[in-house]
Amino acid sequence: MSETAAQWAATLRARAEIDLAALEANVRVLRERAPGAALMAVVKSDAYGHGATPCARAAVAAGATWLGTATPQEALALRAEAGLPDDVRIMCWLWTPGGPWREAIEADLDVSVSGMWALEEVVEAARRAGRPARVQLKADTGLGRNGCQPGDDWAELVREALRAEGEGLLRVTGLWSHFACADEPGHPSITAQLTRFREMTAYAEEQGVRPEVRHIANSPALLTLPEAHFDLVRAGIAVYGISPSPELGTPADFGLRPVMTLSASLALVKDVPGGHGVSYGHHYTTPGATTLGLVPLGYADGIPRHASSAGPVLVEGKWRTVAGRIAMDQFVVDLGGDRPAPGAEAVLFGPGDRGEPTAEDWAQAAGTIAYEIVTRIGSRVPRVYRNERQALGRHPAR
């Protein structure tokens, strides 16, 4: 971040500072964890709230050769705007009937197909586009969400995909699935899903499918299940330096560093007497004469209301706790008699280097997971990028 940008950032009501050097370092660590597989950096939901285009560019610069999104619209925007090298693959997997199949084919995206309705739509779009679609067949190995059921449904999908491939309408580029409980060490579903995945991919290959990649490993499987790495690993939350589960370890345990720091400038500091009610419903009243600090962030910015009276904030080196209800645009902390100046920094979460809370601390306060904490930070909060590359070079060779 330049000096001018730093001065601008300091005047903001609030800001989410994104350290792209940390993101690149995380990608390199994750590649080392799966040395025999290519790495997909998942940048869905605006890169988990961090900003899809800058994060995609940083991930590719650090060696990611695939990018993943949920919706085709996310993938199309990346292809159009990110200025990525031509050999970076982009995959999207959350389709509904009538989706932009033709646009995806023309943008050279890999599209996921879980059932016959989707295969029929992508084949028709390929006919209209006059070029083959890149299709990845998704197997439901036990998660019970998207994906084709084993047995007759899988046999039909494989058969018809091969028929369309024979007609030059598509290329089956991948076979894939997703874990349900990889973030729960020892869960019996992990072995069961791996077995089912091997069975379903073996069947497809026996029928003549020649995929470029087979993949099932998400962040927790990448970090803890080398037998699940196959040809490609999909790193989501770990790219952003957050552990996929406290049970598995902290970010530091895996050599990862949180990428986002969320902070705000105190809008007001004032003296109040004991017994003073704070925020809606007076769920907090001051136990004695004290000072209150107003933090200009609220649930409209993605601060979870469920963390009322619990969310931690660092102000001038001390942890404070949200006092009372978090409102739409603001919340209050009890400063215990300290008097920081208006404009002083209040850090909600970050890497923890300065003793500040982490996204995991907020997740615990709100009864949720750290994924949700970073992903829900809204568009009213500017993203301020540090260590952003001015030009994207080609990614390192594997």
Rank of each mutant, 00 (worst) to 15 (best):
D19W: 14
N26A: 03
A34C: 09
L157C: 03
V43F: 10
V135F: 06
A307Y: 11
T65A: 11
L30E: 00
A344M: 08
P54Y: 02
I326V: 15
V29H: 03
N26I: 10
Y371S: 11
V269Y: 07
A107W: 15
I303Q: 09
L297I: 10
I105T: 03
G288Q: 13
G168F: 10
T4P: 00
R31K: 15
A155C: 03
K270D: 09
P246R: 14
A327L: 15
G36C: 04
S45G: 02
T96A: 14
T250R: 14
A155S: 13
E206I: 01
T69G: 01
R145N: 05
V272H: 05
A47E: 09
A6W: 01
G68V: 07
S309T: 14
D140C: 07
D301I: 08
V315Y: 06
E345Q: 14
S219G: 10
C92N: 02
A104N: 09
D253K: 05
G130T: 13
V158E: 00
G144N: 02
D140P: 07
R171V: 03
D86T: 04
S112G: 09
E156Q: 14
L23D: 05
H306W: 01
E124S: 14
A221R: 05
T261N: 05
A125C: 09
A307W: 15
S112A: 14
A204V: 05
A365I: 11
S189Q: 13
L292W: 11
S245V: 11
P258S: 11
H229K: 05
G36P: 12
F331E: 00
H50S: 12
E120H: 04
A235T: 06
R398F: 08
D353G: 12
G274A: 12
A267Y: 08
L314Y: 14
A10M: 03
G293M: 03
G83M: 02
K318A: 15
